[in-house]
Design a protein around this nucleic acid. Structure first.
Length: 477
RNA sequence: GGCGACGUACCCAAGUGGCUAAGGGGGAGGUCUGCAAAACCUUUAUGCAUCGGUUCGAAUCCGAUCGUCGCCUCCA
């Protein structure tokens, strides 16, 4: 609320109430929606990991102008439109590793609560009905603009809002809208109508989290007017502080410009997932701090892919090491790795405690990966080395789990890549080629071995020779 | 016009008062390897848009300038 970072102290110790604005279900989601969902998914996961009892509410707006327009266009009901795109949303989010919220309320299931809130606001003198509409009177609410840093006079003088003579001020916003011919409607004391956009969040958040809760989130574009209006309504309604901490995620940009529906410069999640693994997209979204803009490009996605590959490559090395037959203690030069192991969790926690700095956290993860690789390069063996490697890989898995990345086996990763890269090669064919080449290698027929290796490389499969076997991976970059 | 954010190497990106400016990608050289690949090592910003100021000390605070973007209208 202060516009800067603050120490996090929840209203009730150990418990967190978090409300995040979900989507308006009228079309398929693009990467911008994914970012918001992933950011708050990470926040929730991290808070839970640190022991908070989090109640996460994420609403779905299932009635509004665009849904009505879409329904008319496709000649189906608004419920069908909203239902369809809500399902698409859940599907996309599941692929991206975004967990479901604890409570996922629809606006239209809470008309009663909204009507109750609107009536209270009218009774308290904060709202007025006109011709079947009801408006919130902004000038009655002291402190309007406190979230977005705007002041009412500036807003009025610079108003680009449609002038509507029925409103007392151009800033007043609709709590309830009279329905037009053919539109869906609900009965209300002011006639047939439907809710305005902002009121659903007030009604539903107070129902599920109480009048005052800890975290409210959404995209930075919701700060004004949506969240500003929510504050006005909610605090006017309850007389209590609405939200303690506001969290707004930055935008995805394309050529430095905000990715958005209206600019038409958006890529849908489905389009992107045709080319990249969901894990790559999720990782990409974590490479910058959640408040910063993040530029979408193939270069960036490819780099994310390479980074993840580096992780899985290390996992392969670890399993090779752990599967190797027991042997005597030797080459234990583990000082640096052990030092890092003992400080690693603190580093990770500090990064995440500092406003969920995932980019910094990833830096520490790769620092550990490098040290681990370095240790393995020393060809250590014995119980002590074994324990250290297990400890390192457990730590990596633990923090990967918090971020919900790095949760595949290397084999799953490469098989998945094979699909997204459209490499049509069955496991059997591949194994056969490798066998064939292994034979050639044993006979020191290097020419033949190289032919096979090149042949596979053409198809996008790279081979890595080990002492007495060969591993395949997918060529990246 | 009002309000706000940002500008760190070839690219991406942490760092917001004090040891040698994280990490990833790319480049160059090397170790390893039949050759590769991977991994590792060395190297690639005496400098953090520019100019001033505060301070013993600033990428980090303050001011100005330039540039980019966002919100003020539906928007994650």
């Amino acid at each position: 609320m202060s516009g800067r970072k603050e120490d996090f102290v929840p209203n009730t110790p150990g418990k967190v109430g978090m409300y995040v604005c979900g989507i308006t279900a009228y079309d398929v989601c693009h990467l911008g929606h994914a970012r918001s969902a992933v950011v708050f998914d990470i926040i929730k996961r991290y808070l839970r990991y640190r022991g908070f009892d989090v109640t996460h509410v994420r609403n779905i707006t299932d009635i509004d102008d665009k849904i009505i327009a879409k329904a008319a266009q496709e000649n189906i009901s608004t419920d069908e439109v909203a239902g369809k795109y809500t399902e698409e949303y859940y599907h996309d989010m599941e692929l991206l590793g975004v967990g479901r919220a604890d409570i996922e309320p629809n606006a239209t299931d809470h008309i009663k609560e909204m009507l109750e809130a609107i009536e209270t606001l009218i009774n308290k003198g904060f709202a007025y009905p006109v011709d079947g509409d009801v408006y919130f009177e902004v000038s009655k609410f002291e402190g309007y603009g406190k979230l977005s840093g705007k002041n009412v006079d500036d807003l009025i003088s610079g108003a680009r809002v449609d002038v509507d003579d029925r409103k007392k001020s151009p800033l007043d916003f609709a709590l309830w809208k009279a329905s037009k011919e053919g539109e869906p409607w609900w009965e209300s004391p002011w006639g047939k109508g439907r809710p305005g956009w902002h009121i659903e969040c007030t009604a539903m958040s107070s129902k599920y989290l109480g009048n005052s809760f800890d975290i409210h989130g959404g995209g930075a574009d919701l700060t004004f007017p949506h969240h500003e209006n929510e504050i006005a309504q909610s605090e006017a309604y309850s007389g209590e502080q609405f939200v303690k901490y506001w969290i707004h995620n930055g935008f995805i940009t394309v050529d430095k410009e905000k990715m958005s529906k209206s600019l038409g410069n958006f890529f849908t999640i489905k389009e992107i997932l045709n080319k990249y693994e969901p894990e790559v997209v999720r990782y990409f979204l974590l490479t910058a701090h959640y408040r910063s803009p993040i530029e979408f490009s193939d270069v960036q996605l490819n780099e994310a892919e390479l980074s993840i590959d580096r992780y899985y490559t290390t996992v392969l090395r670890v399993s090779d090491f752990l599967e190797a037959p027991e042997s005597k203690e030797k080459n234990i030069n583990a000082e640096e790795l052990e030092e890092l192991l003992s400080s690693f969790k603190d580093k990770f926690h500090n990064a995440m405690n500092d406003d969920f700095n995932t980019a910094s956290a990833l830096g520490f993860i790769f620092e550990l990966i490098r040290e681990l690789n370095r240790f393995l390069d020393g060809k250590p063996s014995g119980q002590k080395a074994h324990d250290i490697v297990v400890r390192a890989s457990d730590l990596l898995a633990e923090v990967g789990g918090v971020l919900n990345i790095f949760n595949k086996t290397p084999k799953e990763w490469y098989s998945a890549l094979m699909k997204t890269k459209n490499i049509s090669f069955s496991d059997e064919d591949l194994e056969q080629k490798i066998q064939e080449r292994q034979q050639a290698r044993e006979e020191k027929d290097w020419a033949k071995a190289d032919v096979i290796r090149n042949e596979l490389a053409e198809l996008g499969v790279v081979l890595e020779d080990k002492k007495d076997s060969t591993r395949w991976k997918i060529k990246l970059g």
